[in-house]
Amino acid sequence: MDEELRDKIRQFGLTEKETDTYLTILQNGPATVTEIAKAAEISKRHVYTVARKLEERHLVIVNDYFTPTTIEAAPPEEVYEQLKEQASDMYRILETKYHGSNQLDDIKVLKSRSTVINRLEEMIHASEDQLALSLPAVVIPTLQDALRDAVARDVLVLLLVFEDRTEVGTDPLAGVSLDGLATLVRYRDSNQPVMLAADSKSAFVSSRGVITRPNSPVKAISIEQPYMETVVFTSLMNSLWVNSDEVSVTPPNELPHTYRNLRRAAIDATIYGERGAVITAEIEARACDHPDSVVNLVGEVEGVKQRLISPTTDPRPRQCCICLRTEEGTVTVGNHDAFFEDYRAYKTTLRFPE
């Protein structure tokens, strides 16, 4: 029941820490900021920040006329009425958009196999930072040049290839060269949805049939909206990726090397760590709870928490961070979209100590 409630709450767009804080308030409130911080194991400053966000969503009541300030969960009936009002507002907006335009500019419905493949190729060519894809094996030969070009541009490419062997009767990867095809390649022996998430900007979703069955009435959707990229990336990594087999890993970059994507740095750090190497890092970062200030973190890589590459080191599918031992203590540093970690990295340089 608790996990079901947690999932429902996160559907409102709350981060993991925000969800933990709200559940703590729900179970323990009314409570002071100090009590909530202790129960949720977060800083008091973060409790204040999260409480204001929750208050804006009408999920909690901040009693700042008390000394000390107390925070309590809003009554369920008030939350329900607020959600109904928001849903009604959204319905009116959607109805206006739907009847006022045949199709939103940032959402495209693709109907033919050739259009779908062309769109996938365009999105791969346009990528600059990160690609996560699940593709049927049959389309890999068509897209392999675009994928290799992305890897050559230093784009982090996470590729899941799938196929149902009982349908094709042979090894789907027998004629496919995996060398340089992606940073990491995984395989799953069953039919899956076709998905692509690119650069925290755009996403693509369809069933396998839109590619493998040319006369299929199935349609694909291409969306140029950052929040949908996050949804597709999370869905792909949380379910399909973690339940597939690793079949190819690109060799790590020679050090020193500077990365603009922390996940790529974490992959290389994992590989070097498995070899017993000691690595140091210099990271240009921003604190997750205070993103306005840039800090320069320097220290030894103490470990990596991730589920991208084997061996995995953390049970949470989306988790990917470097544990950095600095002079002030050990901190966790994630990618620029991190919310579990202490810091978000924007530029990371790994090197061997002199």
Rank of each mutant, 00 (worst) to 15 (best):
L159R: 05
A174Y: 01
V151H: 05
L159D: 03
K84A: 13
E78L: 14
A132Y: 04
L143M: 11
S114I: 07
L178Q: 05
A87S: 11
G100F: 09
L135W: 08
D129T: 15
D145L: 09
S101D: 08
D154R: 11
I124W: 10
I140V: 15
S177M: 01
S177P: 01
A152L: 13
E122C: 07
V109C: 07
L184H: 02
D154K: 14
G180C: 11
L181V: 06
A152H: 15
T115G: 10
L135F: 15
V116W: 00
Y98R: 11
V139I: 15
L184D: 01
T96H: 04
L173T: 00
Q144C: 09
A182Q: 04
L178T: 03
V109I: 15
R119M: 11
N118V: 00
L158C: 07
L160G: 02
I93Q: 11
T170V: 14
T166W: 12
V151I: 08
L158S: 10
Q82H: 11
T183L: 08
D106P: 00
R188H: 01
D179A: 13
A150C: 12
D105I: 03
D145S: 13
D149L: 10
K84Y: 11
L173Q: 01
E163R: 10
Y187Q: 02
L184N: 02
R148M: 04
Q130R: 14
K108I: 02
L120G: 02
L131T: 06
P141E: 07
E81W: 10
T115A: 14
L83I: 09
F162P: 02
V116D: 00
V109T: 14
D129C: 06
D106M: 04
V116Y: 00
R153W: 03
L143A: 12
K108R: 12
A132L: 11
S101T: 09
Y187A: 02
A132S: 15
G100Y: 11
N102S: 10
T96L: 04
E128I: 08
L135C: 09
L173N: 00
D106Q: 05
L94Y: 13
S101Y: 08
G169N: 06
I107N: 00
Q130C: 09
I140G: 04
Y187D: 01
I107E: 05
T115Q: 13
L120E: 04
L158D: 05
A137F: 07
D145C: 00
L173E: 00
I107V: 12
F162R: 03
R119G: 03
E122R: 12
